[in-house]
Write a protein that binds this DNA or RNA. Structure first.
Length: 869
RNA sequence: GCCGGGAUGGCGAAAUGGUAGACGCGCCGGACUCAAAAUCCGGUUCUGGCAACAGAGUGAGAGUUCAAGUCUCUCUCCCGGCACCA
């Protein structure tokens, strides 16, 4: 029996969809119809091409889009390219190829691959962040931010990556190494563009509540914003010349009576003033030391706290006691005021520091009697705290804050962890800023001079300075102020890659608008995005930045919704195939997994070799796999992240050419829940491919309609089977449970295969149900079944709920909750009927022997449980 | 350390508190074939039994319930994130 001709079918329908613009959404749509905006996180077109992870989310959104069209929605389902970015530029540095060329080449490969998967994108809305007609509006939004006072320049220590030749935002640096490329970074004081995302901290935090997003992502954003409520308290210094008060921030103002010393971050501006002459040497030495420590070291050494006494004292405003002022790098300069009041009785860090330097410790909250720890930060009653004594924490806080405010010693304050967003990069391949410098003063260009076009250059090498490669483009840099005609210089930094992706979903709505970013009328119809699918690696960066920009656009009345993405789903990553790994030492002897750590033998530190073995060579005992030939040896069994170095990367092109896009799409959705991390298994694709072949054989015969399809009235059983499937597939699609939807389609085919014929009407409805998942095959069969071209806008099969009710039901009979038998009864059967029938059952009788029935529980259509002793 | 999510056959998984393992992969047996592939039919959680059936079983332990993979508590391990944020 031959396999179905997926290659011919798929290229035929891809061509028809393209030629007929099947999925093109016209500019004028019937706005009375409901809308559905299904958005994918647009890809960065890398040189590697798609990997199997990309199509996972894209297939899901495509299935939903196709389903919604059939449900009568106007569906906006666009795609584009996030094409500015580092890899193309680094490739340019290496080879001299202009990033524009690399980008174009990569895009056409990505486009080819996406088209080969049969996604129903409206290709006429394709956008590209590197296109001047696109980035004109990215610049325009920057201008908006600038005009609203949300973009400013600041000279401050920023992360500088020598290897990449650029600064990076805090969130792009992990433990002192760049997220891209993993290069070491250092802090450098530089003048940079910064966006005031902190002004929006509260709005961004509150906005999360209403979003239908994964809880984990909302939580991550909350933590990132890091709101904490407390107080700012001013401590007057004693024996200091100027007597500038020290501002500290605390979330526990109620513990002020236990503040036995103050600590300033080494970077705090007051350090100099506070250091007494005798302490100058020691202090400057300490500051030098902590400057030299990278953040990585500071984090590594987090348990061992160091510090130095300034020689000065402050007055605790609550008890008027004189307390010493210290400097320590466990206090962060960037958070709060860069200074704290230390309450060692209530804070573990302060406790450790106080112990080390023998500073006094006073408890201000009564710990429970059995408390054995050091600092106590639990609930309790205030002690040693004068007028706060006897109050609980919440009451104490309230009372002390009003006391501080009355006496001008401080005030209630809310602090956020989030810092302003470092927005400039010393790169070439990014959006130029619409900024010129006239007499060294930055000036924003008026709208009519946008876009500022990225000049063509030949030398992409980082200049090693904050100027960036654009500083080589002398003709471009030297310009005149178009308004005053004065001599001017252009900004040589460019925007970070996040810029273009902060608002691209708005441009899809109105991609060719020359007059505005988006026409408000159309924007109002389409926004917000109804379904946004993309990886969880963007949980804070992209998703927070995009929300920030959107919120600013909302405040500026450019867009109609405060939040851009109503529902968000993260597809789980697809790992490589499941592997069994045997570790072997240099004598070629197997080493059991229990002795292995990081490819080394824990017993003698020998380097070990990985050897892939097959499932035939292992045996499972308990929850571990052992070597069959030596059952003492535990074998590692797991799936690894796909990576070039591991050699377990699956290329979708190969899968598609062997099994077709439909089988590929179906498999990716059948693997398991969309959100879940799951290992790839090429055998699984064979399974979905087999299923599609079954469908093909059942419905067609040599490219014609199969003789087993008959224009006859369907039998009741056939209709029931169909409607069970309609019900399941529809419900599952509404809940994005693609895997179980596919199971029920398979169950239908398994049943239909056993029928003596398939009524044409049923065949057609089934094809419609399958079509969002396997669109090419279904279009072909739809045509063969004699219907007009394209089923993309056919009405989704309607459920007849009366057909879900079966004539007879299977009842499980339990005795004390244990299954003892099954009976089949008419659906009208009463509890009494069922009890009678079950009591007649041999096995039930046997199990009820010598027992007294105490209670009978009946769950209609499901279970009868005898409770007996 | 803190936050979030998990743990179910050889594997991916399914299961409104109500028959655990649907569907698929793999494997075993059979049919077709000169043979193989493809296809079709049957079986497949483990243990005992020819079978009927019985016992055990959803990471571990306790609890609630007529009934727990599902609810509650304690613990272990895995994945993701954050981490001196006062």
């Amino acid at each position: 029996m031959s396999l179905y001709p997926h290659k011919t079918i798929e290229s035929k329908w891809q061509k028809i969809w393209e030629d007929k613009k099947t999925f093109h959404l016209p500019d004028k749509i019937d706005e009375k119809k409901p809308k559905f905006y299904a958005l994918d996180m647009f890809p960065y077109p890398s040189g590697e091409g798609l990997h199997v992870g990309h199509p996972e989310g894209y297939t899901a959104s495509d299935i939903v889009s196709r389903y919604k069209r059939m449900k009568g929605f106007n569906v906006l389902h666009p795609i584009g390219w996030d094409a500015f970015g580092l890899p193309a530029e680094q490739y340019a540095i290496k080879t001299g190829t202009h990033p524009k060329l690399t980008t174009e080449k990569n895009i056409s490969n990505f486009r080819r691959q996406l088209k080969s998967l049969g996604f129903s994108y409206d290709w006429d809305r394709e956008i590209n962040t590197t296109d001047p007609s696109y980035y004109k509006w990215t610049q325009w939004i920057f201008k908006l931010l600038f005009d609203r006072g949300l973009a400013y320049q600041q000279e401050s220590p920023v992360w500088w990556c020598e290897e990449l030749g650029t600064t990076l935002a805090n969130e792009e640096v992990i433990d002192g190494y760049s997220e891209v490329g993993n290069f070491q970074c250092t802090r450098k004081p530089l003048k940079q563009w910064v966006l005031k995302i902190t002004d929006y901290a509260e709005k961004l935090l509150n906005g999360l509540d209403k979003l239908d997003w994964p809880e984990s992502t909302k939580e991550m954003q909350k933590n990132w914003i890091g709101k904490s409520e407390g107080a700012e308290i001013y401590f007057l210094t004693s024996k200091s010349e100027k007597n500038t008060p020290i501002d500290i921030f605390t979330t526990r103002p109620d513990t002020i009576f236990g503040a036995t010393y103050l600590v300033l971050a080494p970077e705090n501006d007051l350090v100099n003033e506070l250091t007494t002459n005798t302490k100058k040497n020691e202090v400057s030495k300490y500051i030098e030391q902590s400057k030299r420590k990278s953040d990585l070291e500071r984090a590594d050494l987090q348990k061992i706290k160091t510090g130095v006494f300034t020689g000065s004292y402050a007055i605790n405003p609550a008890n008027k006691k004189e307390i010493p002022i210290w400097i320590a790098d466990y206090v962060l300069a960037q958070y709060g005021t860069g200074a704290i009041m230390a309450v060692p009785g209530e804070d573990q860090r302060d406790w450790e520091f106080a112990k080390k330097y023998k500073l006094p410790i006073t408890r201000t909250v009564e710990p429970p009697e059995d408390f054995l720890g050091e600092a106590y930060n639990g609930e309790g009653i205030s002690i040693n705290s004068d007028f706060l004594n006897g109050l609980n924490i919440a009451e104490s806080k309230k009372k002390i804050v009003s006391w501080l405010e009355e006496n001008n010693y401080g005030k209630g304050k809310i602090n956020y962890k989030i810092r302003d967003w470092l927005f400039s990069r010393q790169r070439y391949w990014g959006e130029p800023f619409p900024i010129i410098y006239v007499k060294d003063k930055p000036k924003i260009l008026p709208e009519k001079y946008l876009p500022v076009i990225l000049p063509n250059i030949k030398n992409f090498k980082p200049s090693g300075s904050p100027e960036g490669p654009l500083s080589n483009a002398k003709d471009w840099i030297n310009t005149t102020d178009p308004v005053t005609k004065e001599k001017a210089m252009r900004e040589t930094n460019t925007m970070p890659q996040w810029a273009g992706s902060c608002w691209y979903f708005l441009r899809y709505i109105d991609p060719f608008n020359k007059l505005s970013l988006v026409d408000p009328k159309i924007e109002k119809y389409w926004m917000p995005v109804d379904l946004y699918i993309g990886g969880s690696e963007h949980a804070v960066l992209h998703l927070l930045y995009a929300r920030f920009w959107h919120r600013v656009l909302y405040d500026a009345k450019i867009v109609s919704t405060p939040e851009p993405f109503k529902k968000l789903i993260h597809q789980g990553i697809i790992l490589g195939e499941f592997e069994f790994i045997l570790y072997i030492n240099k004598n070629d002897e197997p080493v059991s997994l229990e002795f292995v750590e990081k490819n080394k033998d824990l017993r003698n530190n020998d380097q070990l070799i990985n050897k892939k073995i097959t499932s035939d060579e292992v045996i499972k005992k308990g929850d571990q796999f052992f070597l069959k030939s030596d059952e003492e040896i535990i074998v590692e069994s797991r799936a690894f992240k796909m990576s070039k170095s591991r050699g377990n990367v699956i290329n979708p092109d190969n899968i598609i050419s062997k099994y077709g896009a439909d089988a590929f799409r179906l498999y990716e959705m059948f693997m398991g829940p969309l959100e879940q991390v799951k290992p790839w298994n090429t055998r699984g694709v064979e399974g979905t491919f087999r299923f599609l072949n079954k469908v093909w054989r059942l419905f067609t015969d040599n490219g014609n309609i199969s003789p087993s399809i008959k224009k006859l009235e369907p039998k009741k059983l056939q209709l029931q089977q169909l409607h069970v499937t309609i019900n399941k597939v529809t419900n599952d699609l509404e809940e994005f449970k693609f895997n179980t939807a596919i199971s029920s389609l398979m169950e239908f085919i398994n049943a239909a295969q056993k029928w003596d014929y398939v009524p044409l009407s049923i065949a057609k409805e089934f094809i419609l149900l399958l079509s969002p998942f396997a669109p090419h095959l279904c279009e072909e069969i739809w045509e063969i079944l004699g219907s007009k071209i394209t089923l993309a806008y056919e009405e989704w099969p309607k459920l007849d709920a009366t057909l879900l009710i079966k004539d007879s039901v299977n009842i499980a009979i339990q005795i004390n909750g244990k299954l003892r038998g099954n009976i089949e009864v008419k659906k009208e059967a009463t509890k009494e009927d069922i009890i009678k029938i079950s009591k007649a059952n041999k096995n039930i009788q046997l199990n009820l022997k010598d027992k007294k029935i105490e209670k009978i529980i009946y769950v209609p259509n499901r279970i009868l449980n005898f409770v007996a002793k």
